[in-house]
Simulated scan of single mutants.
Amino acid sequence: MTFTQLDIFILVADLGGFTAAAQRLGISQSAVSHAIKSLEKELGVELVVRQQGAVELTDVGQRMLARTREITGLTDAMRQEAAAARGMNSGVVRIGSFGPTASLRLLPAILKAFHARYPGIEVQIDEGTDDEVRQWLLERRVDAGFIVLPNESFDTVPLAEDQLLALVPRTHRLAQRQFIAPTDLAGEGFIMSEACCGPLVEPEFARHGVPLHIRYRMSQVLTILGLVGAGDGVSVMPELALPMDLARSHPDVVVIPFRPAIRRRVGLGLRNLARASPAARAFVDIARKAARSLEERKAA
């Protein structure tokens, strides 16, 4: 068993096929297939099954994938520790991002500062829904991920705080209101954002006894804004997830705060901060400083 075989196994699982893994690695498909067959032969179990050109993991393959991620994560951390001891900054840090709050507001400043301090460390960004980022953390697919706080499943590092805002069409009956309550949206066709606030919205409305009549679920903010502006439903989004030029770019969408305000906290989640790789701990440190700087500029 080699680390190369394990890396190929992870890539085949993540990309769903031998061809895609081969293209990513810049090697032949037969080389990928050989690596998987050799790993299966050594372990004495079938890890993958071909399904009409794609690949699915067997039950034991799913269990082995979790173990493989643990092994490769530990080896990455060992290499980074050794590199740090030699006075070198190298390695890879994998980050899960759940939407525009992270990808548009926080990540650019964090990545700029991180690259300036650690130019030799590669940052891989995987973007997905709230649930996907949490699952990636559990599977060790990412070293750290942006999540809504609090979250007791992970070690967490708070970064930013904002509030949830209601989004309604300009022609809506509530459009002239200065503030609203969750009960005001009872019975409305709802467009649920799957990236950046899902874990907060549904429990909050349930707490007020308001059932959500969800018409659509999606993760693209611009699509949500387009549907709201067209009168196809209402939504709730975090302040930091909205475009800064919203009034100009989407004049048919009206934003209304809740009273009392529904606050949201965003941070980084890690399975174990103390045992994280040097690159992951460095990313967390830079993220703290970058987020603090953004807050200071916002308050100025």
Rank of each mutant, 00 (worst) to 15 (best):
M1Q: 06
I8T: 09
G16N: 05
T19L: 12
A20H: 07
A20R: 11
R24E: 13
S28M: 06
Q29H: 10
S30P: 09
V32W: 04
H34Q: 14
H34K: 15
I36G: 09
S38M: 08
E40C: 04
E46D: 15
L47R: 08
Q51N: 14
A54F: 11
G61M: 01
G61K: 01
L65I: 03
A66R: 15
R67C: 09
E70G: 15
I71M: 11
L74C: 13
D76I: 10
V92M: 12
G96I: 01
G99M: 08
T101D: 05
L104H: 13
L104V: 14
P108H: 09
I110G: 12
F114H: 09
A116N: 06
V123H: 10
I125L: 15
E127T: 14
E127H: 10
G128F: 02
T129P: 08
D130Q: 04
L137F: 09
L138I: 11
E139D: 15
R140L: 14
R140E: 15
V142Q: 02
I147E: 01
V148W: 00
N151E: 10
F154P: 00
D155A: 07
P158A: 04
L159V: 05
E161D: 11
R170T: 03
R170E: 09
Q178L: 13
F179K: 14
T183M: 08
A186E: 12
G187Q: 05
M192Q: 15
E194M: 12
G198C: 07
P199Y: 02
E202I: 15
A206I: 05
G209S: 01
P211I: 00
V221A: 07
G226S: 10
G229S: 08
G233S: 10
V234A: 02
M237I: 12
M237H: 14
P238D: 14
M244H: 09
L246P: 02
S249L: 09
P251K: 06
D252F: 00
V253D: 03
V253R: 00
A261E: 13
A276N: 01
S277C: 06
S277G: 06
A282E: 06
E295N: 12
E295R: 14
R297E: 14
K298H: 12
K298M: 12
A299D: 08
